[in-house]
């Protein structure tokens, strides 16, 4: 995982409802013809709000589970 890890959006499951774009607290997303896209990726804090809001499961924000002594290898 790095500072640029971003939620993954599956355009095939997206209905373009715009909920994620509207409610992203960091204004990181914008709507395009292909569905939501990252407008300002660096502002995304990986807060998981968009994943929880999306009614169709189109957004996925996976979390890796590791022990503390492993974390230095993953940063």
């Amino acid at each position: 995982m790095t500072e640029t890890t971003l939620p993954i959006i599956n355009p095939l499951l997206c209905t373009r409802c715009s909920l994620c774009v509207t409610y992203c607290p960091e204004d990181a997303l914008r709507m395009t013809d292909q569905g939501p896209a990252f407008n300002h990726p660096v502002t995304c804090t990986y807060c998981l709000d968009c994943e929880g809001l999306c009614p169709t499961g189109a957004i996925r924000a996976p979390l890796t589970v590791i022990w503390k002594d492993q974390s230095s290898n993953h940063n």
């Binding site: 995982m1 990986y46 998981l48 929880g52 924000a61 979390l63 590791i66 022990w67």
Partner: peptide, 30 residues
């Protein structure tokens, strides 16, 4: 359900069991 998992992760973090950072859940205390 998702909301319960989210709440429990916050509880675990407050109790010093885990730490959350971008895309990671780091387990602190086995």
């Amino acid at each position: 359900v998702r909301d319960v998992v989210g709440r429990l992760l916050r509880d675990f973090e407050a109790a010093g069991l885990i730490q959350r950072q971008r895309g990671q859940i780091i387990l602190l205390d086995r």
